[in-house]
Amino acid sequence: MKITTERASETIELGKKIGASLKENDVVALFGELGSGKTTFSQGIAKGLLIKDYVISPTFILINEYKGRIPLYHIDLYRLEKIDDIKDLGIEEYFYKNGVCLIEWAERLGPLLPKNAKIIEFEIIEENKRMINIKEPVANL
């Protein structure tokens, strides 16, 4: 399902809808280039999970944890280009930690990407316009 958003607030609103449908041990994998809206969308997911805190980019610290109706593990693999570095991070533990695992730069995961991951792709169309492609298996949309 392809959705075009015209501004950041629409991307957040879409994330919020998806966030509201998420349950324990769901993995959401975000694909797309720098500035394509992944962190903005993540802020929406957090709203859908009833997280009150600001969701900021985890690029520097790699994993941020938030408390909501279920925990959110917000992971960013931007800086980790080698699969071994990702394995060292122990990322797989987070897939089964009874929370939602939200992964930016999921293209870096390669074969580590879990089968149940909900894949969402982001593309810059114009300055503020984004194409968001929600692939199966995402239910309730």
């Binding site: 962190t39 802020q43 520097f60």
Partner: peptide, 18 residues
């Protein structure tokens, strides 16, 4: 006040990379 998305230093790193 604090950042709502990227830290300033992170923006520097990402722009340097671009």
């Amino acid at each position: 006040g604090r950042t709502r998305d990227d830290a300033a230093g992170e923006a520097f790193d990402k722009v340097a990379r671009v």
